[in-house]
Simulated assay, not measured.
Amino acid sequence: MSGRYTERATAWSGALVWTWHGPRGPERPVLPDGCMDLVWTAGRLLVAGPDTHAVRVTDTGDGLRAGIRFAPGTAPALLGVPACELRDRRVTLDTVWRGAEVRRLTERIAEAGDPAAALEGVVRSRAAGTDPPDPLMVSVAARLERGHSVAATARAAGLGARQLHRRSLTAFGYGPKTLARILRLQRALALVRAGTPYAEAAHAAGCTDQAHLAREVRDLTGTTLGGYLAGLGQEAPGASGAPGALGAKSDTAQPSGSRTTA
């Protein structure tokens, strides 16, 4: 039995609000994407930190899950902790914020008719009393997402290699080379999902060749390109680039820290 996934943009620093209605279904690996999430699930508030590899999340209960997905570099200012402290972790929100505040927010969301809207209200209220995300690091993430090299990005930001690395740990949870690698993988997988042949997707995303992409997929996701598509209900693209049987994104169990599941 499938569920329904939805997402929409918010006005806050490129964040997305997502919901998942229905059963989670079989355990799926959640792929790294540079994002962090504030998640409402099973009556609890959780923070999903930035991942460096695929993470298997077990959650087979029915019901509604909701969350706010923060673009790379935007969550630390709101949460009040460096992203590197949450790298490869899922923690309850009271690990980050005061317990009394988290209990109050948990009660408010539990009583709300729309948990996603209530979560969005939490973010708006919190953002009003905190500094905005570091604009320089948001710009760094945007350049890396467009495929610019780390060296060129550092020059554009006016930062030395060590400065960029140090600030990246705070903003993204890891260094700029790791973020660039993760974002390159996401570009490649988006092309593959659209039916682009593997070799073309590898070149367009910035990999040296198809073998390079295959290694990156295995290292970061723990599966193969064919296994990734099979998990989405798709067939490998043929020579013409025509996609196989598409698995609708809305039927893919998403949330727990990544916009993409294998």
Rank of each mutant, 00 (worst) to 15 (best):
L191H: 02
L183C: 09
A142T: 15
A180R: 07
A214R: 15
A190W: 03
A161F: 02
P135Q: 09
S139C: 11
V217N: 05
A157R: 03
Q210W: 12
L213N: 06
P197C: 07
T178A: 14
V122Q: 12
R184D: 05
A202H: 01
E145P: 11
E120I: 02
G147K: 06
L164H: 05
R215C: 00
L191K: 01
L179M: 03
A128M: 14
A141I: 03
R218D: 12
M137R: 07
G175H: 10
Y174V: 02
G113N: 06
G147W: 01
G113M: 07
L189P: 08
A157W: 05
A188L: 12
G113E: 09
A205T: 10
R126M: 02
A190N: 12
R166C: 04
L144K: 10
T208P: 00
Y198W: 08
R187G: 06
S125N: 11
L183Y: 07
D134F: 08
L169S: 02
D219I: 05
L159G: 03
R162G: 10
E200D: 13
A118F: 06
R181A: 15
A194W: 02
D134P: 05
R181E: 13
Y198K: 09
L136F: 02
A180K: 00
R126Q: 08
A127V: 13
A211R: 15
R155I: 12
I182G: 01
V138S: 14
R126S: 04
Q163S: 14
L119G: 03
R181L: 11
D219E: 14
V140R: 09
G160C: 01
R162V: 09
S125V: 11
V138H: 05
R187N: 06
G147T: 08
L144S: 08
L213Q: 13
H148S: 09
A214I: 06
A199V: 10
D131F: 13
H165N: 08
D219V: 11
L185I: 10
A141V: 03
P176M: 00
I182A: 11
L183H: 06
V192N: 02
R167L: 13
T153F: 14
D114K: 00
L213P: 01
Y198G: 09
R193L: 08
E120H: 03
A152W: 01
R143Q: 15
V123D: 04
D131H: 14
A127P: 06
L185R: 13
I109C: 01
T170Q: 14
L213F: 10
G129C: 07
R215P: 04
V150N: 04
P115S: 10
R184G: 07
R193Y: 01
A188N: 10
T170G: 13
G147M: 07
A110V: 02
T153R: 14
A201T: 03
G158M: 03
H203K: 10
E120S: 05
L119P: 05
G173W: 10
L220S: 06
S168H: 04
R124D: 11
F172C: 05
S139N: 12
A142P: 15
D131G: 11
R126I: 00
H148N: 07
G173S: 05
R124H: 12
T178C: 13
I182F: 08
R162E: 13
A199Q: 06
D219A: 14
A211K: 15
R184I: 04
L169M: 12
G160T: 09
L183F: 12
E120L: 05
A118I: 01
A205L: 07
P135S: 08
R187C: 04
L136W: 04
R146M: 09
A201P: 00
R167T: 09
G206D: 09
A171R: 01
G129W: 13
